[in-house]
Nucleic acid binder design. Sequence first.
DNA 1: TACGTATTCTACCGGTGAGTAAGATATCAA
DNA 2: TTGATATCTTACTCACCGGTAGAATACGTA
Lengths: 229, 229
Amino acid sequence: MSKQSAALQPHRRLFADRKRNPDGKRVAVLHTAVRMFLERSYGRTSMDDVATQLNITKPALYHYFRNKEEILVEIYRLGTDLIDEMLDSIEADEKPGLDKVADFIAGYIQIVTGDFGRAVIRLDDGELSKAGRKLVRGRKREIDHRLRAIIEGGIGDGSIASCDAKIASFLLAGAIHGMAAWYEPAGPLKLSAITNQYVRLLTGGLAADGLRELAEPPFAFKGNAHIHG
Amino acid sequence: MSKQSAALQPHRRLFADRKRNPDGKRVAVLHTAVRMFLERSYGRTSMDDVATQLNITKPALYHYFRNKEEILVEIYRLGTDLIDEMLDSIEADEKPGLDKVADFIAGYIQIVTGDFGRAVIRLDDGELSKAGRKLVRGRKREIDHRLRAIIEGGIGDGSIASCDAKIASFLLAGAIHGMAAWYEPAGPLKLSAITNQYVRLLTGGLAADGLRELAEPPFAFKGNAHIHG
DNA sequence: TACGTATTCTACCGGTGAGTAAGATATCAA
DNA sequence: TTGATATCTTACTCACCGGTAGAATACGTA
């Protein structure tokens, strides 16, 4: 809590005067909004709440966003962009499918422990209009398809045991999504410990040859860390 | 959808006259409400919506429940009771920890593909009052602790590789929770296929001796099936 | 400094939804 | 059949929230 309000302080100050900085202020709204949406949910966070947190009044928000939904859609876009980037980087690698999966687990955990990554998972896209929902769900589906393709590649190159890639990708993503729900940066569980065990457990189950060593330890994905809370 | 409205039909008819059947009608409200909450979320389902679906008017609902929250809490209670029962049955068994985990996976999947089980996972307890939230979260925490104990037992008896049981239990539950989110009874993926692969993948990762055979195939948990949709 | 305008504010509208008051109606028990 | 009451309805209150109109203010620039 103290950590959070501390992180929100700079955004409050941004709106202390009327200095012209539309882009910066727009981003500040997004950072504040995503935190509040994650904490209280989108539906229970009013535009007044967000405005108050930024030391402005509600109508000022409408200077930067056409409506509440636009804020949420933009948050989703930032989050899915992070994931897309990670997938780009993994797909570009030349390694066995199972190792790519290990990289995915590590990278995905890194992302979903940040605000915008967690938003993709936790915020309810059912709050969106039909158009917005279609957009957001399309992006999510694409991510799932790319993960599935990686798993299928691993089955093809023999590093992953034959299985239904659709089910396996759901399982993988689901396990990590669950983590996004309970993970607390200030909590007792260290992120590296969680990541290690997730990789071990999940790749252990997938591996074609039972318990095995990965060719390389999973890399720590880095990229756009600046966007994280 | 047709399947759903078909399932809801009997409840509509229950309220066609004013026959006195408070217990039956109360349960009918819960069955209708849980379906609607799962489909549109608790927050976006109004008491008017529920009443209309039952062919009555809103104030009639207040004859059976003090307020909206009481409906949700009761739904949670029914769901967590199902899970508790399954855990009772697993704990009573005498078998290696890993086999108990396999049973848990199969049983949990069975439960969370039903309405009330899914409700425990999918419905947002953040909508509850402080008191209600405390109650519900306590029940969820207890379930997690029991799963953790089973895993620790498996580490103790040597069937599960040494690991952090807390992380492992979160992973397990998270993977299955994810499933509850996307599983569609009418979808292309058969439940038995999903269950098989989940058991294989998750126990495969946990097993002390790499890829191994379970002592017995996981049982299909049955109990209170009548409560399912 | 003074103007144009980006930024923000005060005051409001309209819709929605939880919950209630008070009365009507049908069921059940005698 | 009739009275008691469980059940359900009509009509309402109140609070909240997304969004807007139009005015005020202060920043940047010429």
